[in-house]
């Protein structure tokens, strides 16, 4: 863990806005070692941002789950599928004959 200067610590003391932004960044891109230290320093003293972090992870998982619904959803009309399949078959035959 990087050592933070007194100024950097003071800047993070009450900065829930920055802490929650870093939480969001950490999930997607990763954050720099300094940012990691800033976040850890803040999370050590802020109960609310710990709650936020847990819930943010839960939301990410829930959204993932919602986006993979069960079967029986969005089916193409049979007629359209048959027609498309014929078109694809025709093109495939054509290209394999080349």
């Amino acid at each position: 863990m990087e050592n933070l200067s007194d100024q950097e610590k003071a800047d993070m003391l009450d900065n829930c806005r920055k802490a929650t932004l870093l939480i969001e960044k950490q999930h997607t891109e990763g954050i720099t070692p300094i940012e990691k230290s800033e976040l850890e320093y803040h999370l050590d003293i802020c109960e609310m941002c710990n709650t936020f972090m847990d819930q943010s992870a839960v939301i990410n998982q829930m959204v993932k789950k919602l986006s993979h619904p069960g079967k029986n959803e969005s089916k193409l009309a049979e007629e359209f599928k048959e027609q498309l399949q014929k078109q694809i078959d025709a093109k495939l035959n054509q290209s394999s004959n080349e």
Binding site: D14, N15, C16, R17, K18, M48, C49, T51, F52
Partner: peptide
């Protein structure tokens, strides 16, 4: 968030 960056009252997680 407040100007300081702290959660606003009534918005605490």
């Amino acid at each position: 968030f407040e100007e300081s960056g702290h959660w606003k009252e009534g918005r605490y997680p």
